[in-house]
Design a protein around this nucleic acid. Structure first.
Lengths: 340, 340
DNA sequence: GCCCGCCATGTTGACGATAACATCGTGGTC
DNA sequence: GACCACGATGTTATCGTCAACATGGCGGGC
């Protein structure tokens, strides 16, 4: 079942235009425009007549015409990863809510990090004359691709803290360190890590920070377990956790849940034998078994800051310093002092 | 190759237009239009010259102008609930993927089911001359509100099976019955139900079907436990499950996870003492503890059918029968024969 | 060799809004 | 009472595209 592209669109009944409203109110179309745009200097009585005519006719502004005339659309283009993970999805909702408050709406498109896919997404959004662009840049390569293409304000979101300018992100290094220091402080010395999708910025940052941490503390580098964010992958990785490992740092919560499942199947108990830390603090993680210790990321704040900064840029002001959003550790029942 | 942007054409920051391309290619703007729209009867050499000019200038079509001229926008408006739950989110992604294949993109806006909120969302989308509308109608009241407002094709999604015409949904009654019959067949006779948000169509259908099932089988109606889809609510409801209940039907998976957590805190074992069934089959449910028996809903199929049907309507054809999407039961470890 | 017709392309006028400039009373100032 | 400023509104041009109609050159049929 594949949808088929439309060949012809019925150009049936367009709604009333400003001229229709103007005629009905006995004014010029320009007066209607002024009423709609809250210009000063309209006689209250005239304004009321116009508003009445609008209501009578069920008139709705044609934003296409407005966009053509002004060059602005009050739409923010959002490029999302193709798979609905918790972070991007939460951020999207946060952006929508923040944008709504300033009269903007998000136009969504998904793209993989490949240049052609990203290019198509950009073309589509820019053709719609979006006023700004949010790119959920999960891969470092997309940055260059976007930069050269447009002069529309662009903000990168969910990039870790790797591109300080024009990007809003949760500090991945800090988050990872919170998790690892918590485990270290509990006495753990043998760590393994289940990664997110290889190459994605956040996965890479968590992984790099993990390795750096081991080196700093002089801990052994056991094999990295490659994951892909999914609980399935977490389960498979959990089966491969080495004997003697007591601390498992998972790049997100679903993988942590999968891994715990695998560990328990192997007869290991969490947290008595192995302590497990996740990342994201998804709403269910407090009710996992055992309740998951995890790094909380405030995606609502990310979305809010992104929209706020974009509004500044659109209005010609420089946005304030775009600081990283600080994550915090939520300690629950999946971590305990190292055994022995 | 980086597109070059001659300063000559920049009229206050706007990109090049068809006229600029036409001038560079030595043709008329209409020929450019014809090339872009794949009209027949362009000499290959001319076409190539136009395409080259487009590349040279980094030209991008202005969809606002196109929308103004044609009345169509190749955008599907989507009205989503304000809270990012699994079903709507998954469906959104499915819609995006299906729409992309036919050159459409979703323009997202969220709204609560209140008329004013829904009205604002509609105004916004219709002003953007969307070619079609997908309404995730979680509340029965929205239907009337939308119908009277527009003649744009509208499709309701995620409505259970309660509005057969112009709606695509997973059959909630069937899904609920699958869950309950499974429990009944295992010998359970004392059931309780944790509901979704009161008033929402799907929550209501699951609840009604639950009660109908009890009556049909002559089972006792124990108190309904009111939930709100969240794991938190599931936990609280789990604490309130009556003594002697052996079968707990939860309106979604996160609540099931919360409830299981609560039951185990109370010293009850799942599934030995209480069998629990969820709804949705979220990706993590297979790794919950115990792995969750649940009703799988195919949101990908929902999104695909929605877009397919909308394309039919846009083309002036009647969409085929819009059948419910059939859910199926995934039996895992959270259900077992009734004790005793 | 003329005319017809068709193929490839050019020209003009919407589409519905905004922006810039024009107009028309009206009341205050001197 | 003439003049001017200004408040309220009207008029015209413009944004970039598509649709409808116009044109012009060229080959073929007779």
């Amino acid at each position: 079942m594949t949808p088929e592209r439309p060949a012809s669109l019925s150009k049936s009944g367009r709604g009333p235009s400003m001229h229709d409203v103007a005629a009905r109110a006995g004014v010029s179309h320009q007066t209607v425009s002024r009423v709609l745009n809250d210009f000063p200097g309209i006689r209250p009585e005239t304004r009321e007549r116009v508003l009445q005519a609008i209501r009578d006719l069920g008139y709705r502004r044609n934003m296409a015409a407005r966009a053509l005339a002004t060059g602005r659309s009050e739409v923010i283009g959002v490029i999302m990863p193709e798979v609905p993970h918790f972070g991007p999805t939460s951020t999207l909702y946060a952006i929508e809510h923040a944008a709504k408050r300033v009269g903007f709406k998000p136009l969504i498109t998904t793209a993989s990090w490949e240049p052609s896919s990203m290019g198509q997404a950009l073309d589509f959004l820019l053709a719609r004359s979006v006023d700004a662009l949010v790119v959920m840049a999960q891969h470092p390569d997309v940055l260059a691709a976007v930069e050269t293409t447009t002069d529309v304000p662009v903000l990168y979101v969910l990039t870790g803290n790797s591109h300080a300018e024009r990007s809003v992100a949760v500090d991945q290094v800090a988050g990872t360190r919170l998790a690892l220091e918590h485990l270290y402080d509990l006495g753990h010395r043998r760590f393994q890590h289940i990664t997110g999708i290889a190459g994605l910025t956040e996965a890479q940052l968590r992984r790099d920070t993990f390795l750096a941490f081991l080196d700093e503390r002089g801990l052994e580098r056991l094999p990295i377990l490659e994951g892909d964010w999914s609980a399935d992958a977490g389960y498979r990785a959990g089966l491969a956790v080495e004997e003697g490992v007591t601390a498992l740092f998972c790049a997100n919560d679903p993988m942590a849940m999968g891994a715990i499942h695998a560990l328990e199947e192997r007869g290991l108990t969490v947290p008595d034998d192995v302590s497990v830390v996740g990342f994201d603090d998804v709403p269910e993680s407090g009710y996992a078994h055992p309740a998951l210790t995890t790094v909380h990321q405030d995606f609502t704040e990310v979305g809010l800051r992104a929209v706020t900064a974009l509004m500044e840029i659109i209005n010609g002001r420089e946005p304030g310093e775009l600081e990283s959003v600080e994550p915090w550790l939520v300690v629950r029942d999946s971590t305990a002092p190292a055994p022995g």
